[in-house]
Simulated scan of single mutants.
Amino acid sequence: MDWLQVVVLSVVQGLTEFLPISSSAHLILVPVLTEWEDQGLTFDVAVHLGSLIAVILYFRHDLRRMAASWTLSLRNRSLHQGGDDPDARLAWWVLLATIPVCVIGFALHETISVSLRSPVLIGFSLIGFGLVLGYADWHKREGRSEYQLTLRDALFIGLAQALALIPGTSRSGITITAALLLGMSREGAARFSFLLSIPVTALASGLEIHGVLQAPQEIDWQAMAVGVVLSGVSAYLCIHYFIAFIKRIGMQPFVVYRIVLGLWLLWIFW
Rank of each mutant, 00 (worst) to 15 (best):
D84H: 13
K140S: 13
V103N: 04
T111F: 12
E218D: 15
S193L: 08
T169G: 07
L63S: 06
T169H: 02
G232Q: 03
A223E: 07
L126I: 09
W70K: 01
S78L: 08
W270K: 00
A160G: 14
F192W: 01
V30Y: 00
V30A: 07
A68E: 10
V226R: 04
V47N: 03
G82P: 08
M66V: 06
L180T: 04
L149W: 02
L265I: 05
S185P: 01
L27G: 10
A25V: 09
W36H: 07
W36A: 10
L74C: 11
I268P: 06
M251D: 00
A91F: 08
Q214D: 15
R152T: 15
D84A: 15
L126K: 02
E187M: 10
A160E: 04
I246C: 08
L90Y: 07
V45A: 06
L237A: 11
S197E: 03
T169V: 15
R144G: 12
G50W: 06
K140Q: 13
P199S: 06
V94R: 00
L165T: 10
I239T: 07
V103L: 13
A202R: 01
V120R: 00
G188D: 03
H80D: 12
L203A: 15
I268C: 03
A136H: 04
D153C: 07
G128A: 05
F192L: 09
A97V: 09
L261R: 01
S125Q: 00
A225K: 03
L72T: 14
V55M: 04
V103T: 08
L4N: 10
E37M: 06
F194N: 04
A88S: 11
T111D: 05
A215K: 14
T16G: 09
P100S: 05
L159V: 15
G173W: 01
F18T: 10
W221A: 13
A162P: 11
H26P: 07
R117D: 00
I99V: 15
Y257K: 01
R77Q: 13
Y135V: 15
Q222E: 12
M251H: 00
K140Y: 10
S170A: 11
G83F: 02
V212W: 02
W36I: 11
I157M: 05
G232R: 02
L151Y: 11
Q13T: 10
Q13G: 10
L4A: 13
L263T: 09
P199M: 03
E142T: 13
I166V: 15
G40F: 03
L165M: 10
L159I: 15
V229W: 01
M251I: 05
D153E: 07
L165E: 04
Y257F: 14
R117K: 07
